[in-house]
């Protein structure tokens, strides 16, 4: 009797769990599905009441219109370069500094690390006006360099990789040092290769953040040909106020690269971004 009621309550718990998980999953996926379905409808069909669920035809016209009104080739290229350079800078400089802060003794270390902490705790908007003025003064507005500029160094990356290097036992470095490596060789031949998981996490985190950033690209690159996917897409809402099929097609084109990467590297993305603890 007892086992029977236990089993029943177990089954009920299970059903309730799945019910809410599936409901949640539907809510999460629905906007994407609706975006894809709408992107193949004509404007009159998208405005039909009651709405059609599946488009009457599968067509690429809306994508053609989106590409005709936004220079997507440029946007992809700019976004790829921006993300690439930001990731390279973040990984290279943060690894170096993270290693030094974790493993080396030098005067001024605490004060210098204090600068890292101060930057981390301030929102990036507080730097934007002066950063923009620097870029403008250098005559570098509307360039790839301008897009990369605030991401040349990453305080968060330094903080994060310092923790990784601190978790590597001292003996590893000492052994390399006794083998005749100098500090630089110890760093890049022995220590750096041990941090690949963290470097991957930092790479993903930096890339996702840079990809989605909107305010900086809008401020610094006003030329449509020099925009990123995010800032370029945002100009589309002024062009097509009621043509939602084209807006959906544009949104798909803008989010596609990162979503594809995400679906390929799901585990690395989830664990990488969650592992960095966010910013």
């Amino acid at each position: 009797m007892k086992t029977d009621s236990l089993r029943r309550s177990y089954m009920i718990t299970k059903c309730v769990t799945y019910f809410f998980l599936i409901l949640g999953a539907i809510i999460m996926v629905f906007p994407f599905v609706w975006m894809i379905l709408t992107s193949s409808k004509t404007v009159p069909e998208s405005m039909q009441i009651p709405p059609t669920i599946f488009p009457k035809q599968i067509m690429a016209d809306n994508f053609k219109d989106a590409i005709a009104s936004l220079p997507f080739a440029n946007l992809y290229w700019n976004t790829i370069l921006m993300v690439l350079f930001r990731v390279l800078c973040a990984v290279l400089f943060s690894s170096m500094a993270g290693y030094a802060f974790a493993k080396l003794k030098f005067r001024g270390k605490n004060i210098l690390f204090g600068i890292v902490l101060v930057q981390m705790s301030l929102p990036s908007q507080i730097f934007i006006i002066p950063q923009y003025q620097m870029v403008a003064k250098m005559g570098m507005a509307n360039t790839i360099f301008a897009l990369v500029f605030p991401g040349l160094v990453s305080a968060f990356g330094v903080f994060f990789l310092r923790q990784t290097y601190m978790s590597i036992p001292e003996e590893v470095g000492e052994a390399a040092y006794l083998d005749g490596c100098n500090q630089w060789q110890t760093f890049y031949k022995v220590m750096f290769p041990l941090t690949t998981t963290s470097v991957a996490a930092l790479t993903i985190f930096t890339a996702v953040f840079a990809y989605g950033d909107l305010m900086w690209p809008l401020v610094v690159n006003s030329d449509l040909k020099m925009m990123t996917l995010s800032s370029g897409l945002s100009t589309l809402k002024g062009q097509f106020t009621t043509n939602f099929p084209v807006l959906m097609a544009g949104s798909i084109l803008a989010m596609l690269p990162m979503v594809v990467l995400y679906l390929i590297f799901q585990r690395q993305f989830v664990e990488g971004i969650a592992g960095t603890g966010g910013k």
Partner: peptide, 24 residues
């Protein structure tokens, strides 16, 4: 060791001073 420490944090610190501390 101290010199290596300074060299390795230099890009980050210079960057943070120019890009963040001074703009702040």
């Amino acid at each position: 060791e101290e010199n290596w420490g300074w060299i390795m944090v230099a890009p980050t610190i210079i960057g943070l001073v120019v890009l963040n501390l001074w703009p702040f």
